[in-house]
Simulated scan of single mutants.
Amino acid sequence: MHFSKFLVALPLALAASMATAQWQWLDKDGRKIFSDRAPGPEVPEKNILKRPAGTKAPASDSNAQTTPEGTKVDGAVAPAAKDAGVDKALDAKKKQAEAAEAAQKKAEAEKVAKAKADNCKLARQAKTTFESGIRLARANSAGEREFLDDAARASEMQRIQGVIDADCK
């Protein structure tokens, strides 16, 4: 009785083993694919990792040409892949980081330009005030008010003119 069960179980086990995934290849994203069916023609020969027993790799044709990806094309030249070996997600992150950096630099440049414009406006107002000839006073280090003499007025005018030359362009 045991022998008859063995004779029935053996062909079933062999049939089940033949039905398991016999093909193994890498898809375009580099993931391993297992299947009982052959991969499509878009899968290059070099990406096929395992074949079922009894199938052979296609023979090299004399009129077939090899593309940069390693696939063969009969009589016609296949277009080269534009992004061969480039990780699209990494490329997108890199472009996003560059765009963010450019936006940050632009915002910083706008901030500097606004500060220069404000400095220019204030310096021109101060120059107008100093050129008017009215008496000007400022607080000294002790907090007391002191009036500017001609030397202090001239040095302050020179400083204001330097600000105007630097910021008003």
Rank of each mutant, 00 (worst) to 15 (best):
A102M: 00
K32L: 15
D167P: 03
D150R: 06
V73Q: 14
K94F: 11
E101D: 11
G30A: 09
V86M: 12
W23T: 01
L26D: 15
K72V: 00
Q158C: 03
A64M: 09
N63V: 08
K93P: 00
A21S: 13
A84Y: 15
A154F: 12
V73M: 12
K93F: 06
A76K: 10
R31Y: 15
P68H: 13
T55M: 08
T66S: 08
A109W: 09
I164D: 01
K105Y: 03
L12A: 14
M1Q: 14
L10G: 07
P44H: 02
L10F: 10
P41M: 04
R138C: 06
A126S: 07
C168E: 03
V73L: 13
V163N: 03
A59Y: 00
A137H: 00
A137Y: 00
K114D: 10
R31G: 15
E98D: 14
V8G: 06
P11H: 06
F147E: 09
T55N: 02
W25S: 04
D167S: 01
A115E: 14
A137K: 01
A103Y: 04
D29H: 14
T128V: 08
H2Y: 14
K127I: 05
K88R: 10
A19D: 12
L7E: 13
A64P: 08
A80R: 04
G30I: 05
G85D: 14
D167W: 01
A123E: 03
A78D: 08
P58G: 00
R37N: 13
A109M: 07
P58C: 06
L10S: 07
K32T: 15
L10I: 10
F3L: 14
A15R: 06
A113C: 05
L10D: 07
L148Q: 08
T20A: 04
C168R: 02
E156C: 09
Q158W: 02
K127T: 03
K5R: 14
Q96G: 12
A78H: 05
K88T: 10
G143F: 04
D149M: 02
G162L: 00
E131K: 10
E146W: 03
N47Q: 08
P39D: 00
G40E: 01
F6S: 13
A115Y: 08
R124I: 06
A81I: 07
K32I: 13
A103I: 06
L10E: 09
L136A: 05
Q104Y: 06
A97V: 14
A102D: 01
I48S: 11
G75N: 01
G30N: 07
T128H: 00
P58Q: 02
G143L: 03
R153K: 15
R145H: 07
A152V: 11
A126T: 12
A123I: 04
K94E: 12
D36L: 03
I134P: 07
Q96Y: 13
S141N: 02
A89P: 04
K28S: 12
D150I: 04
R31M: 13
A92W: 12
K56V: 06
E156Q: 13
A142V: 01
S4L: 12
E144I: 04
N63L: 11
L136K: 03
A57P: 06
V163R: 02
K82P: 10
E156G: 07
Q22W: 04
V43P: 02
I134K: 14
T67K: 11
D87E: 10
L10N: 05
K28L: 11
F130C: 05
